[in-house]
């Protein structure tokens, strides 16, 4: 079995993002970038499946600008085998990315594609679902468990009401939730080894995808700020304020 893991380069989750003063987007110049946390979980799961002897190869995919290979390297240092980079500086929408992933999954003969459930910059939560629809493959979204079996994969999904267990066929598309695993740190020898692992660079045309904007971002603005509150120092005072000032309890 071959596993394809699409990974995205995003602003590090620990950075407090700032909106640009011209409202065209958020400040990305000189900001620390990292692999999207859900993608790290996806890479980790793929490696565990490989280490369990159920997969021969873990291939990483990422679409983005010229620094994108750095993010692919992060995954190679965790232990993935090789990378595919579709290089473009254009704004990419989930449908476009899903089409690129579909083309690469097809070409590589990937039996399982593991994506993050959500990128923490755009908070789209769309690409995996779109990929499953495009490839007409069964979808396991928001998974907290996956086991390979004779029929494909037994998965557990985190849903709003609790957990849902499904049996899905193979080949399949799954997206990771936070509790699927705890991603490993790359060891120094593995970081060194990763430098020699191959990353193939392709253009959008190479994967047969035309980039066409289907949405337009008109503005990116600061969210409304909350007004500073007050300190309370006891239960009596708090309850009084909730009843008589905020009027949220009676």
């Amino acid at each position: 079995m071959k596993i394809l893991v699409p990974v995205k380069r995003v602003i590090d989750a620990n950075i407090r993002v700032r909106v640009k003063s011209d409202n065209s987007g958020v400040e990305t110049a000189n900001v620390k970038m990292a692999m999207n946390p859900f993608c790290e979980i996806a890479v980790e799961e793929a490696l565990r499946i490989k280490e369990a002897g159920d997969a021969e190869e873990v291939i990483l995919f990422s679409a983005g600008g010229e620094k994108t290979p750095e993010t692919i390297r992060t995954g190679l240092a965790m232990g993935a085998d090789r990378g595919v980079h579709v290089q473009t500086d254009e704004r990419l929408e989930p449908l476009t990315i899903a089409k690129m992933i579909a083309a690469v999954a097809e070409k590589e003969g990937a039996d399982l594609v593991i994506l993050g459930k959500q990128s923490i910059d755009g908070d789209n939560n769309q690409t995996g679902q779109m990929l499953a629809a495009i490839m007409k493959r069964p979808l396991g979204s928001y998974i907290s468990e996956i086991k390979k079996n004779a029929e494909g994969f037994a998965i557990t999904r985190e849903i709003d009401a609790g957990l849902e267990k499904l049996q899905i066929g193979s080949p399949a598309v799954v997206t990771t939730d936070l509790r699927l695993n705890e991603p490993r740190y790359a060891s120094l020898p593995n970081i060194m080894k990763a430098k020699k692992k191959p990353i193939e660079t392709l253009s959008p045309a190479d994967v047969g995808v035309e980039i066409k904007a289907r949405t337009e971002v008109l503005k990116v603005a600061e969210p409304p700020a909350r007004e500073a509150g007050v300190r309370v120092s006891g239960a009596g005072e708090l309850v009084d304020k909730l009843k008589n000032e905020a009027k949220v309890i009676s």
Partner: peptide, 16 residues
């Protein structure tokens, strides 16, 4: 819609 965990609000227009 909120983006970046609600650190920014994006105004987006659908072209289709």
């Amino acid at each position: 819609r909120p983006i970046y965990a609600g650190n920014a609000m994006e105004t987006v227009k659908s072209l289709e």
